[in-house]
Design a protein around this nucleic acid. Structure first.
Length: 427
RNA sequence: GGGGGUAUGCUAGAGCGGUCAAAUAGGGCAGACUGUAAAUCUGUUGGCUAUGCCUACGGUGGUUCGAAUCCAUCUGCCCCCA
């Protein structure tokens, strides 16, 4: 086994470790079971989760065994690190549903075994990996036992020294007892995973460092064993924005929420300064290649962006979708024709077009504007195009005269396209 | 348990009882310039059947010709004391 830890480090995945040498040693000695926790608040992960996912994938490729857990139990509490708001409490069914969606996405990158998608019955992991819900062990926890067996290992004065909590306290934000306990539960997860599956390495975002360390300590105190932790740097784009956020909200891995085309576009629009980092994180290219692409400058860097976008899209959605997205993208921005483009399409009843649809209404209806007023502004400001012809009159009515090959190509601003097809009269 | 403070649009944050759909900044969107980048400049940024109408300034109820602005009460959050 070559040294995966070095590889991860080189790619920028490592922010903090319990002890770099020991972690490297551990990973070079034999198969290591490692785990990462994922948020189960939605049915889909978004691109922010790609960092842990890719790190897990690198480790699995090196022969180690991944366990992904979703926080069915911890979601019911709310993580204090998420300072802005308490996470919504979700029902167990909801979490299970979300979990299934998330598992499907993880499986594109990892082999988590099979037969464990059923979260009601997830207490097993296969040879290659596993997917667990921490509700399995947290829900049955007895408060008094928990205090006695787990709680006694935590020192409050130590806990409040942790950055996350300290900030909360110093900035006078307040911290509920409920939130305060989050750390114990997360630590308990690690202990359970160590006991049942021999898990010896936990990975997570750097904001989780305190919680993860608590788990490391707990295992040492209860079992007298040394387990490890590695955190990832928290990604922001060069312009300071949170990774994976765009105007339309988060960039999801689910094709239903974020189409492969939009997904591709997100990566194409990467800030120049981020290209090389992102190639290291989000593709499997050897570092030599990453460095080569990352060193491109000025216009040539678009080549690197295209490679990045294609690769990431292919990983998330498969080759077919990636090809389609790339073709569509090239056509839309390279001047080619758009006929076979994978541009989001909406259908409109033919009779409505015969009557004529006010342009504002059309743009609003297909989702290129959030309201008619917004559509009106779009038109007035010269951002509305139909078949690449700009329309600035708000009283424009779209009817069958504008059809080209039985379709309309709408464009809002420079980048957002929507194809309109005709739907025959409804039955 | 007692006392005090605060609650505004996506966010932060102004706001004399009328001229407040609400200053300003950030963010978003559009335009110009570009490389589908960044930076910069300009415009715009609640909704609608649109020179007017509706909904909004934590909830409810009052005072008033008129309230985001005053009063009462409820709720949330914060601070001090216990």
């Amino acid at each position: 086994m070559h040294n995966v830890f070095e590889a991860l480090n080189e790619r920028g995945f490592v922010k903090q470790t319990t002890n770099a040498e020991q972690v490297a040693h551990l990973l070079s000695e034999g198969q290591v079971t490692y785990y990462v926790g994922f948020d189960a608040t939605a049915t889909s992960l978004h691109v922010g989760s790609l960092v842990p996912i890719m790190a897990m994938a690198h480790l699995q490729r090196a022969g180690h065994k991944p366990i992904a857990i979703i926080g069915g139990g911890t979601t019911m509490i709310g993580d204090p690190t998420d300072k802005t708001e308490m996470r919504p409490m979700l029902s167990q069914e909801q979490i299970a549903t979300n979990g299934n969606g998330i598992l499907a996405q993880l499986q594109r990158y990892l082999n988590l075994g099979n037969g464990i998608a059923d979260l009601n019955n997830s207490q097993t992991t296969s040879e290659v990996g596993g997917f667990l819900n921490n509700a399995d062990w947290l829900l049955s926890v007895n408060y008094l036992e928990f205090l006695r067996d787990i709680g006694k290992h935590f020192r409050v004065n130590e806990m409040i020294r942790a950055e996350g909590y300290r900030q909360r306290l110093e900035r006078e934000l307040g911290l509920s007892f409920l939130e305060f306990n989050y750390q114990l539960l997360q630590a308990y997860d690690y202990l359970c995973l160590f006991q049942k599956y021999g898990c010896r390495l936990q990975l997570g975002g750097d904001d989780q460092w305190g919680n993860i360390l608590a788990g490391v300590d707990l295992v040492r105190r209860v079992e007298g064993e040394r387990v490890h932790a590695v955190t990832f740097p928290l990604l922001t784009t060069a312009s300071g924005a949170k990774m994976g956020k765009t105007a339309g909200g988060a960039v999801w891995l689910d094709a239903e929420r974020t189409s492969p085309y939009e997904f591709y576009q997100y990566w194409i629009n990467t800030d120049d300064r981020d290209v090389s980092r992102f190639l290291a994180y989000f593709t499997f290219f050897p570092m030599d290649e990453v460095r080569r692409l990352g060193s491109l400058e000025d216009e040539a860097i678009r080549e690197a962006k295209e490679v990045l976008a294609y690769e990431v899209t292919q990983l998330a959605h498969g080759k077919t979708e990636a090809d389609k997205a790339q073709t569509a993208s090239r056509a839309a921005f390279g001047g080619g024709n758009l006929d076979d483009a994978a541009i989001p399409t909406s259908a409109i009843a033919s009779e409505r077009l015969e009557t004529g649809i006010p342009i504002m209404e059309l743009f609003h209806e297909v989702g290129l504007a959030n309201s008619r007023s917004e559509a009106r502004r779009l038109v007035q400001q010269g951002g509305a195009y139909i078949n690449e012809i700009q329309y600035r009159a708000i009283d424009t009515v779209v009817d069958t005269n504008l059809l080209e090959a039985d379709a309309l190509l709408l464009r809002a601003g420079k980048k957002r396209y929507r194809r309109i097809t005709i739907k025959e009269n409804q039955l």
